[in-house]
Simulated scan of single mutants.
Amino acid sequence: MPETRNITPPATTGPGLLIHAAGPMDEEGLLAVLRSAANATAALPTDRPIEVLIQGPGVKLLASDSVAIAAVQEALGAGTHLLACENSLRSANLEPGRLTPGVGTVPAAIAHLAYRQWDGWAYARL
């Protein structure tokens, strides 16, 4: 599997949950996705990682100057692994260095989804 960038892969005893959010997204949409991740964190075993993968124009909300910065930082602090699709970053003219510290990237969301599913991860599309 290609490595994700800018994050340390979570240590687990098994697969986790991958939450995929794609397409146009405003701040309220991202907040809803992050609430779902927080709810999953509270309800699932603590040794199972939660990844939120943002694909599409919503990657702009993961930037360090985003209106959603506080929510992004809170999610990261709670242990949620936030990932941005590099193809989407290019389409949005957003350099990976402008992402909030702690937000990782994957080369292609579609490939990351496939790899995680092949590895037995649960998948939720929001």
Rank of each mutant, 00 (worst) to 15 (best):
residue 62 L to V: 05
residue 27 E to L: 12
residue 24 P to K: 14
residue 90 R to N: 09
residue 30 L to E: 01
residue 106 V to F: 04
residue 9 P to Q: 07
residue 18 L to Y: 03
residue 94 L to R: 13
residue 5 R to F: 13
residue 77 G to W: 13
residue 27 E to Q: 14
residue 63 A to T: 07
residue 126 L to P: 15
residue 16 G to Y: 10
residue 56 G to D: 02
residue 18 L to Q: 00
residue 126 L to E: 14
residue 40 A to H: 09
residue 126 L to C: 10
residue 94 L to T: 07
residue 116 R to K: 13
residue 1 M to I: 11
residue 85 C to I: 10
residue 35 R to W: 10
residue 96 P to N: 02
residue 111 A to M: 09
residue 113 L to C: 13
residue 118 W to P: 12
residue 123 Y to V: 00
residue 47 D to R: 03
residue 73 Q to Y: 04
residue 121 W to Q: 06
residue 47 D to C: 01
residue 84 A to S: 03
residue 58 G to E: 01
residue 51 E to G: 00
residue 67 V to F: 00
residue 64 S to R: 15
residue 27 E to W: 05
residue 65 D to L: 01
residue 89 L to R: 06
residue 45 P to C: 08
residue 48 R to G: 03
residue 23 G to E: 07
residue 122 A to K: 11
residue 30 L to T: 03
residue 103 V to T: 00
residue 43 A to E: 03
residue 121 W to N: 04
residue 42 A to I: 05
residue 67 V to M: 03
residue 7 I to G: 01
residue 116 R to E: 09
residue 45 P to Y: 05
residue 93 N to F: 10
residue 88 S to Q: 15
residue 87 N to R: 06
residue 19 I to K: 01
residue 21 A to V: 02
residue 49 P to R: 05
residue 50 I to A: 01
residue 63 A to Q: 11
residue 19 I to H: 07
residue 78 A to Q: 15
residue 97 G to E: 12
residue 93 N to C: 14
residue 61 L to P: 02
residue 117 Q to R: 14
residue 19 I to G: 03
residue 101 P to C: 01
residue 7 I to T: 13
residue 74 E to I: 08
residue 49 P to T: 08
residue 97 G to M: 12
residue 57 P to S: 14
residue 28 E to T: 11
residue 8 T to R: 13
residue 81 H to V: 14
residue 115 Y to V: 09
residue 10 P to Y: 11
residue 119 D to V: 03
residue 33 V to Y: 02
residue 95 E to C: 15
residue 30 L to I: 05
residue 68 A to T: 06
residue 78 A to I: 10
residue 46 T to A: 14
residue 105 T to G: 00
residue 109 A to D: 06
residue 42 A to C: 04
residue 100 T to M: 08
residue 42 A to W: 09
residue 123 Y to M: 02
residue 112 H to N: 05
residue 89 L to V: 00
residue 11 A to E: 15
residue 38 A to Y: 11
residue 65 D to Q: 00
residue 15 P to W: 08
residue 68 A to M: 03
